[in-house]
């Protein structure tokens, strides 16, 4: 039984002007980079709703770029993140879509990494710097970026989930929550596993070695 912390009233330290349009936007960009798992080379970002309407005035574009570069919400370099992106060879294109918004502050990000890997990530800023990642590639998900999160794409076969969670359990990893998203029956699935402890590289290797597992992505530092 705990009350709210006084640090929910004073804090966080952040780059202004807006916790939802700046800090939250950065965290969506950062999450997209975590899904990519490498340095991005190109990014196409579609801004929806209020993001689309007011992004310039709130530095939403710079914040998203900063997130893609891996910066945190209180990084002094956020203001110049667009220039920093071009210096680092990251080519970003922004598009706006005023209608059809799922949530007023939504960004859909398509990334290509330096190795040529592609990912698509969609997320919304839900207020006070909080976010929800709602789509990873074709999978509908619900990732809040509060816990270390392991994404495991795997074939739709009986027993896979048990094998993966057993590996985590035997490594002393406690699962905080878990969801399985699938495109359709028999198609590939995506396990979204929120854990209390970060999943180490060694454990990731073990999970990846499970025959039905296609790919794993560890999102440890939101």
């Amino acid at each position: 039984m705990t009350g709210k912390s006084v640090f929910e009233i004073i804090g966080p330290a952040m780059i202004g002007p807006s916790s939802s349009h700046t800090a939250g936007a950065l965290r969506i960009g950062r999450a997209a980079r975590l899904v990519l798992g490498e340095k991005p080379a190109t990014a196409e970002i579609v801004l929806y709703g209020s993001f689309a309407k007011t992004y310039r005035g709130h530095g939403t574009d710079r914040a998203l770029a900063a997130g893609l570069l891996g910066m945190n919400t209180d990084d002094d370099r956020i203001k110049d993140a667009l220039a920093a992106a071009s210096r680092e060879g990251l080519d970003i294109v922004f598009k706006t879509e005023l209608s059809g918004a799922v949530h007023p502050n939504t960004a859909a990000i398509t990334l290509t990494g330096v190795s040529g890997r592609n990912v698509a990530v969609e997320g919304s800023s839900t207020g006070g710097g909080n976010i929800v990642i709602s789509r990873v590639n074709q999978f509908i998900v619900n990732i809040r970026g509060v816990y270390p999160t392991l994404l495991v794409e795997h074939r739709d076969r009986p027993g896979v989930i048990g094998r993966v969670t057993t590996i985590l359990g035997q490594s002393g990893i406690n699962i905080a929550s878990m969801n399985v998203a699938r495109k359709q029956k028999g198609a590939d699935n995506l396990m979204v596993i929120e854990t209390d402890e970060p999943v180490t590289e060694e454990m990731q290797k073990q999970v990846a070695a499970t025959p039905e597992v296609i790919e794993i992505i560890a999102m440890n530092s939101f």
């Binding site: 009233i9 004073i10 804090g11 966080p12 330290a13 952040m14 780059i15 202004g16 002007p17 807006s18 916790s19 700046t22 530095g59 710079r62 209180d74 002094d76 956020i78 203001k79």
Partner: peptide, 21 residues
């Protein structure tokens, strides 16, 4: 002004009212 110029502030209680405290 720092907040709206993308400088670092502490929300107190919010970014928009961060100057008073």
């Amino acid at each position: 002004t720092v907040s709206v110029s993308m400088g670092k502030i502490v929300a107190a209680p919010t970014a928009g009212s961060s100057g008073i405290l």
